[in-house]
Write a protein that binds this DNA or RNA. Structure first.
Lengths: 213, 213
DNA sequence: CCGCATCCGTCGGGATACTG
DNA sequence: CAGTATCCCGACGGATGCGG
């Protein structure tokens, strides 16, 4: 059964927290920022939330108008996705993530979902505006993503693209490590922890952009 | 004893929530946005948090570097105040409040602190840029505040000012009601639920600015 | 297998009383 | 005034069940 407690405070901040302040709620929103996801995908992205709590939160967030539950497109599997109101949380959640960079790392073992790394990548990226436009295909956490570098911006999209300069397959944590130290790219290629197809320098541009140059 | 659970997730968002995601934490931050406050003032502003939980949260937030506990200035009473890092939450908390405006109001009885109304006032205010600069003194929740209207902006400061066009004493909820319907100003004056001294039209400008014109 | 529901143990949080 | 001590309940977390 969903949580029903409230702060009993008419302040907008308190009312916002009545909606998305319960445990795991904002992490679910984080997961849905880039793409709708299924229950099992959310479980994989948030391995530390128990299934009953996840079900509770999803129901709550749906009842309160933050997310929606239904087939995104014709007769696909049922996915959870943000409503228009829920999407307005995006800049807030991203800002919270930027703020949290300065918070201490949790001790191992720590989870790291594909969405987390990609959101970080978008927000931290400072691509060279003079560099050539680049499109990379990413295989991350069992899904395919498209990353576009152009006009001094980095954008992530869920799904395949028709034309990519290169493709990279990695674990989210490995990609995170590479963003902290892009110079380790070749080594990671050699030891097989990542797989690169196509123009390696495109991947290199992505990593250096995502590391803030 | 403070909470020690974690999301065990290296994502910045999760780490931020490890710090300020526990219940009441962000409402404490809200209370400290405008001015440092003492324990008893926080209790009054957050009447629904029990003293032990408040003490726990304050200790946690202090340990994690969000707030500081000490005499703000020479030998005053001990107050809680935001650290530099904690202050970086300000735009996030304000944005959350703006988002929460569209969330349902909690059933009565609902609390409403002076800080809450004043933060809302600052964020919702759209003062007429052509109107004359105005300074109002506010007595709200047992404290004195200074509100300045100038250059199409509204700014709130804690404490007295030397020169004010008018002074208004009210309960936070009453002020909130007036911001929703500024035309009720005279009535509230008459029935004694507020007290105005000085230029009534200055208060009127404040209310209309705070109501988004 | 996916999408939950149920059961149960634990712990965070709420209310009250009390202390330096 | 500024918290602490205590008790209790509900939210949370883990495991398992179970229908589609």
């Amino acid at each position: 059964m969903p949580t029903s407690r409230s702060y009993w405070d008419s302040c907008g901040i308190a009312r916002a927290l009545d909606v998305v302040g319960e445990r795991w709620a904002l992490l679910i929103v984080r997961e849905l920022l880039l793409t709708p996801q299924r229950f099992s995908e959310l479980r994989q992205a948030l391995p530390n939330v128990s299934s009953n709590v996840l079900a509770d939160r999803l129901r709550e967030l749906e009842n309160r108008g933050v997310i929606r539950h239904g087939p995104a497109d014709a007769e696909g599997p049922k996915v959870y996705e943000l409503t228009e109101w829920g999407r307005k949380l995006e800049p807030i959640v991203r800002a919270l993530g930027t703020w949290g960079i300065d918070a201490p790392q949790p001790p191992e073992p720590a989870a790291l979902s594909a969405s987390s790394v990609l959101i970080y990548l978008e927000d931290a990226a400072r691509p060279d505006p003079t560099a050539p436009p680049t499109v990379c295909r990413l295989e991350l956490g069992g899904r395919v993503w498209t990353v576009r570098l152009a006009d001094g911006r980095l954008q992530v999209q869920a799904g395949e693209t028709t034309t990519a300069d290169a493709s990279l397959r990695a674990e989210p944590k490995t990609l995170s490590t590479l963003l902290a130290d892009p110079s380790a790219l070749e080594k990671k290629c050699d030891d097989g922890s990542i797989t690169v197809v196509g123009d390696l320098s495109a991947i290199r541009r992505l990593l250096y952009a995502g590391s803030g140059r």
